[in-house]
Amino acid sequence: MTSAQGYNFAYLDEQTKRMIRRAILKAVAIPGYQVPFGSREMPLPYGWGTGGIQVTAAVLGPSDTLKVIDQGADDTTNAVSIRRFFARTAGVATTERTVEATVIQTRHRIPETPLREGQILVYQVPIPEPLRWLEPRETETRRMHALADYGAMHVKLYEDVARFGRIATTYDYPVLVNGRYLMRPSPIPKFDNPKMHMNPALQLFGAGREKRIYAVPPYTEVKSLDFEDHPFEVQRWDQACALCGAADSFLDEVVTDDRGGRMYVCSDTDHCSARQEIREAAE
């Protein structure tokens, strides 16, 4: 695909990228801390990944290989259009293979394939503030972060256990980063929370509408909040993936007909197809 004419490399102008990179550097220096940045208007609506795109644009170089996933899939509208956006404005190579990618922009998932050093995972974040549900005032939430005043956060978990007998929060599950800042991991399933812990890749989070960037640097401690008698645990499924047979991946329920027929398949399409290829090769 040829680069679009009339745009700077990766769409954003260099001054804007500089501003975003500064915010990213600060975010990396203070893991989990939300750094405000001057979010730009992007050629797609808020909620479609404007924050993630700006972060990706700021870190992308000509030699990078970009992968974009939405709910684990490379072939959904959001993923396809963002991938094409960068293919056209930056001319970078794109891929659907996690292992080949150097930059992965994601909405709502972390790939099943373990990430390695040198890779960057960019999350699209709708609401960055983990304390927002209990404290609507920004001045007060900032103060709570400054003072590490996080006790009230457990109130939400308490309410879960009181109501459902267990912590019922299943996505966007709050974590404590590096033992200091409380962070919203964006609406990833809590299944993915353990992957953030001590991950060799750099994890960057961009919230376009809320104008915040935060980061989890490689090999950083990320702890999911819990109670001693109700420890954090991830989802489990009774069955394996109907396509690749994986028993340890995050499964999506797919309705197959109007008579209640359904199947469970890996939400990570790359992971699933790679496993299917291996299986076919073996046969």
Binding site: V155, E159, V161, F227
Partner: peptide, 27 residues
């Protein structure tokens, strides 16, 4: 009070704020 959370959570909040992390004990 926090009007949006249960009576138990309202009472338990101060305990959690000072570090209590055992649900059963808090309740």
């Amino acid at each position: 009070l926090r009007m949006g959370v249960s009576a138990g959570a309202n009472v338990g909040e101060r305990l959690m704020a000072v570090g209590a992390r055992h649900y059963g004990a808090i309740r």
